[in-house]
Design a protein around this nucleic acid. Structure first.
Lengths: 161, 161
DNA sequence: CACAATTAAGTTGTGCACAACTCAATGACC
DNA sequence: GGTCATTGAGTTGTGCACAACTTAATTGTG
């Protein structure tokens, strides 16, 4: 034992941080990469696919609601949805009830694309090599992580009531 | 049992996919968001922090080696490293041994920043609410996932020997 | 030696994420 | 009813990720 308890421990923290944050970053990009390959045929990017998943599941939604489901703001969604519209998968229509709101509606083509998308999640699941139970467990872990991180970020934020 | 085994199961696949891919996407962005807050004082973005972590741990490295550690290509790293150079944290120097290669070297300022960065991983770990063992476990799971996804993406790729 | 293939950086173009902002519609309050 | 704060989309600017490409240096092979 030395007088200085553990000078290396500090570096170990940075090392651990390197490991965990890099692992998550890499996993996210790896997922993105595989989806990129699998979604190429459908002409969708990964975030566009997420939007389509929500629309297929929830039906037509205003941009605001889409953003709540996906935790994305209008700065991300506006151009993304415009690209989906350009691809003929959705229409954007001003709500008559509230003229601020824009409804995103699936076109026939957009609704039909769902059939072709059914194969994607199976292939993703197969690629992970995880069984459904493991996937579910990992998902829970990640959701807990997200919730904890969001709470912490709020606390760290400049003005935190 | 009906003649059609489970017509709803197809939709469930899309739903599960929605869950897991969204969870990972959200966790990655949540991490990014918290790092954004914690790194603001250091004047670093999250990917820039990753580069600095590698340099602090490994010492000066050519861009190529940096990319191997972080799985990033020159298209991402070149402008990023230039921004680090503009911030005075690194210098870029053509290798004399191999003029194709560019060595990224920490400046005094860049090396000194490490002291201030030591606090970051502790605060991140605290924010997750996970103990070191859980973090390690999650990391292993994510690394396994990344490896499986990378392998699958390779197999799916156009030309796969 | 010469010349083709490979390699390391860098560039260009597209799309996503997010902060900070504008603008118009809505709602609340006096 | 008029004013003002709030809300929903959208825009702008910065930075990251990645594909496709260019350029220059190096290596391999005849």
């Amino acid at each position: 034992m030395t007088a200085t308890p553990a000078p290396a421990a500090e570096a170990d923290w940075l090392r651990l941080d390197h490991q965990i944050c890099f692992s998550l970053h890499a996993a996210s990009r790896a997922f993105n990469g595989l989806y990129r390959v699998l979604l190429k045929d459908l002409g969708l990017t990964y975030p566009q696919y997420l939007v389509m998943l929500v629309l297929w599941e929830q039906g037509d939604l205003p941009v605001k609601k889409l953003g709540e489901h996906l935790r994305l703001d209008s700065g991300t969604l506006s151009p993304l949805v415009k690209r989906l519209e350009a691809a003929g998968l959705v229409r954007r229509e001003r709500s008559t009830r509230d003229e601020r709101s824009v409804e995103v509606r699936l076109t026939e083509e957009g609704a039909a694309l769902r059939e072709r998308a059914l194969e994607v999640p199976r292939r993703i699941a197969a690629a992970t090599g995880f069984d459904p139970h493991e996937i579910g467990e990992l998902r829970e872990r990640l959701d807990a992580l997200t919730a904890a991180l969001d709470a912490a970020a709020l606390q760290e934020a400049p003005g935190c009531p």
